[in-house]
Design a protein around this nucleic acid. Sequence first.
DNA 1: TTGACATATTCATATATTCGAATATTCTGA
DNA 2: TCAGAATATTCGAATATATGAATATGTCAA
Lengths: 112, 112
Amino acid sequence: MDDPDLRRKAETLRAVAHPARLALLRALARGARCVSDLQKILGVSQPSLSQHLQALRRERIVDFCEDGNLRCYYIARPTLISALCGLILREHKVVRRPPEEIRCEGRRRRRG
Amino acid sequence: MDDPDLRRKAETLRAVAHPARLALLRALARGARCVSDLQKILGVSQPSLSQHLQALRRERIVDFCEDGNLRCYYIARPTLISALCGLILREHKVVRRPPEEIRCEGRRRRRG
DNA sequence: TTGACATATTCATATATTCGAATATTCTGA
DNA sequence: TCAGAATATTCGAATATATGAATATGTCAA
């Protein structure tokens, strides 16, 4: 089972799954920004930021438009990213389910 | 800027961002399953599956309870994971914003 | 107690990611 | 045309991740 669709989804997630890129998206969620502004906001080196932007561009998560010398980056998949950021940046409760409550769906069961 | 909170969030995302683990979670979303059932469903080798489960356990994304010989895995953060899977497994439209529409939030602007 | 099953761990290797340094490209203003 | 700013690319080293093979552990049934 090597589902190309799942592989693409995983690649998209991977692109987001980095602290600097999460910070980047959080910043872009508040509005389009040029690279040097982003650099100041994030406090990473210019080449590093450029590489992170490239990773996000590859997955079509961000895009930019040119404004003279500047490139204003914006989020190219707002529905996905705003939901994703909203989700991940929140805390989520961890449940612990007792054995009695678990119905293992498979054919194998011992007791029960 | 090295935000430990963002780092943890990124680690959680990374744990999910793998095709086999996405398939795993999709399967578990339909109900708890023991390892050998998961193995049949996913078609990966037993050690490989075990390692993927370990990765998800480390992030408290899944947990298990023992049923004799079997370990029934279940999703330990249902709100996070169901939303995340729901999101990522859907297609999301890509927008392309024209320059006129972009207001770069920073202090730098050339024309406009 | 033994054998078979279910699952986990370890190890080695292959591969991918990250980060910094150096360099290249493109645009703008003088 | 030139200098400088903004951004991108390339490269190499360090590190992390993935994968398969071999092995270990724990449990059940006989």
